[in-house]
Design a protein around this nucleic acid. Structure first.
Lengths: 110, 110
DNA sequence: AGACATACTACGACAGATAGAGTACGACAG
DNA sequence: CTGTCGTACTCTATCTGTCGTAGTATGTCT
């Protein structure tokens, strides 16, 4: 990966979700809460964005879903796959590259 | 600006262009070259992306265009406006916020 | 019983990015 | 004086992630 495309800085929701599934399966509502908490309320992901990301990630084979209602509430859990984990790592490296590039064009107050 | 939307990490081409117009007017081909050089070949902006960005920026009042052919070649130059400069500053601040949020979800090898 | 939180789904629209093709002109080599 | 290369764009159509709006259904708490 020697260069980034302009579009790469768009799809980091997928990366965020994969990060949150890294250690254990989870589901929509929970993920949404975690994003809000971890970002200290700075980022609140829209429901539609989140669920459409799940669909995309599953189609791509990066997560697998299963239904569990042992908690009383019926939920669709998502579990990261091997290829999802690899994709996450690749996106992290891409992020570092992207960030470095953009930083060249950003100025800050002294 | 207390929180970012998911979409904010998408439109940084506009910011990059405004940065390059900050000190002097310039035109498409030149801007493209500068982006490639400054990013050390890591980012090569597509022509269509660039020119559609110019259109958008002009519509928004962030740049003004004028034609100059005193060099022999006819070129459309773009000049940043006051409001363009303000927009650039705002995007820089937004970037810092966005970057900080995303960094929470990125892991690196030790 | 009603309000509120949880846990989604469906549909349509938007905007930035991109592919692909085409136009036009100047410079320069053979 | 001809063809190629670099410069400097324009036009059109398509893709994709995000987002607005709405609706459904169940569990919990008062």
């Amino acid at each position: 990966m020697a260069e980034i495309s302009s579009d790469v800085i768009r799809g980091y929701n997928d990366t965020i979700i994969l990060y949150l599934l890294k250690d254990a399966p989870s589901y929509g509502y929970e993920i949404q809460k975690q994003i809000r908490e971890i970002s200290e309320e700075k980022y609140i992901i829209k429901e539609t964005t989140l669920y459409s990301a799940f669909t995309r990630l599953e189609k791509a084979g990066f997560v697998q879903s299963f239904i569990d209602d042992s908690s009383g509430k019926k939920r669709t859990y998502y579990q990261i796959t091997e290829s999802g984990a690899m994709h996450y790592k690749a996106k992290c490296e891409e992020w570092d590259l992207t960030k470095d590039v953009i930083e060249h064009f950003i100025e800050r107050e002294e």
